[in-house]
Design a protein around this nucleic acid. Sequence first.
DNA 1: AGAATAGTGTCTGTAAGACACTATGCC
DNA 2: GGCATAGTGTCTTACAGACACTATTCT
Lengths: 268, 268
Amino acid sequence: MNSTKEITEAKFLKRYDPSRYERPSTSIDCVIYTILEGELNILLVKRAEHPFKEQWSLVGGYIDLKLDSDLESAAKRKLAEKTGVKAPYLEQLMTIGSRDRDPRGWSVTVVYFALISADSLTLQPGRGALDTKWVKLSDKKATGGLSFDHSELLKLSTKRLQNKVLYTSLPLYLMPKEFTLSNLQRVYEVVLGQSIDPKSFRRRILGAEIIEETGRQNKETKRHAKLYRRIKNSHPHYFVRNIEGCRSRPLNLKANQQFLHGLKTVHE
Amino acid sequence: MNSTKEITEAKFLKRYDPSRYERPSTSIDCVIYTILEGELNILLVKRAEHPFKEQWSLVGGYIDLKLDSDLESAAKRKLAEKTGVKAPYLEQLMTIGSRDRDPRGWSVTVVYFALISADSLTLQPGRGALDTKWVKLSDKKATGGLSFDHSELLKLSTKRLQNKVLYTSLPLYLMPKEFTLSNLQRVYEVVLGQSIDPKSFRRRILGAEIIEETGRQNKETKRHAKLYRRIKNSHPHYFVRNIEGCRSRPLNLKANQQFLHGLKTVHE
DNA sequence: AGAATAGTGTCTGTAAGACACTATGCC
DNA sequence: GGCATAGTGTCTTACAGACACTATTCT
């Protein structure tokens, strides 16, 4: 096929020089969602180094060829470094790569999205970052001017999340250990930005066998509500139809605000 | 933050040395599907070089930092080099990366899947490959022992395709320019490996406004059937419900074989 | 009592599955 | 006529939306 002398694969590998061809840089970015104060929030870090020094960006960074054995463990490492959380819901979203998304040259980033419950959080200052903060998705000023193409990644990620929530039980991963059906419904509504008929919602969730009663009640509201938990080790559930959405009912923002207190006080 | 003197971003970039940190290699792989002889086929190439020299693998290779401006154009380039086709359906599937998937070291591959119609094909011998062939997915011997982790990627890709076909119009991209509803139904059935009730199928497809009559007929079958074409520039259609599948009817493999002739003879 | 929240009864609407049926064209 | 294939009529089923209703607990 070509003019070099025939060699064995073992010899080829021994002589292989990885620096001979130019490679793009390859990094991981995580869009980490949680519910705070009844709204969907994401985690940002302030960059300690150039480029985009001191600007806010998604949680991420280079793969460490020594530390990370595969992409997912690299993502988990980034996540753990910033949130101190072990095993939330983590899904690979997409991979973006181009010549100009990073001023340092051709760059590829594998984007993950993570869902974690606010009650399991411990923020850590972490390496390579000056600071870490949660921002509401509705805060356009905070989510707008991120470094690299992160504002765009965030938008795509959120659209994907919203779409997936129409036919899955993903919001369960945003919930604390115990929650009421109304709590869960509000999280669905917050993520989707639309209200859902409570009867339909209950039918859907209770029919799927993805949560179970704890036997306890949330006594924070007027009428006490049953507390549920996610069934252990359950995979996300895929419903056969989409939520089509209430044609009438407006979103009740006040109820979502209240949810803050619900979340904070349910488990002491 | 650290001990180096404060510098501007411009200075930082000027001094930036991309070879300072070790990077994983980053490549593209494409799972290219088409319908041949009434079955789902994928394109394989025989590797010309080490590693896995002379073994079969998916279409793929390294990103060319000079030629490719982004990931998708890299995928399109690979595709065009092997099939001679311009603009089929191309979707990013997932990205796999680990320390040991390539004997040369830490390696990342971005996997795309492509759907093309058999009538638009022109196979090209192409660079870096000794040979190119279509193999049936049912041919376990051919799809089983691919180089790297390609057999596994193929399985994942096919599962994803099958799942997506349950709620989309993707099989349209496997069809020739003109086709009958029965042809289309057979392609759905071949991809899914299950039969579909013809009445439901027609309701579904005709209700979605994704195809239009050409005014012509396929005269190859006993009773002539209307020929349709995909509506121009149409995006894939997302149905609100999944195909749940016929509980009774078995898959008619004979009809699928016949489809070969249908496809070959419809347009001369 | 009255407000607020949890939770239900039951009707309608939509799209899929079942399956027997009719229609057309070749031999 | 007989077969094969295209295409339909119409009943059932599953599950979402609409919306008025009841239930519980606090003040």
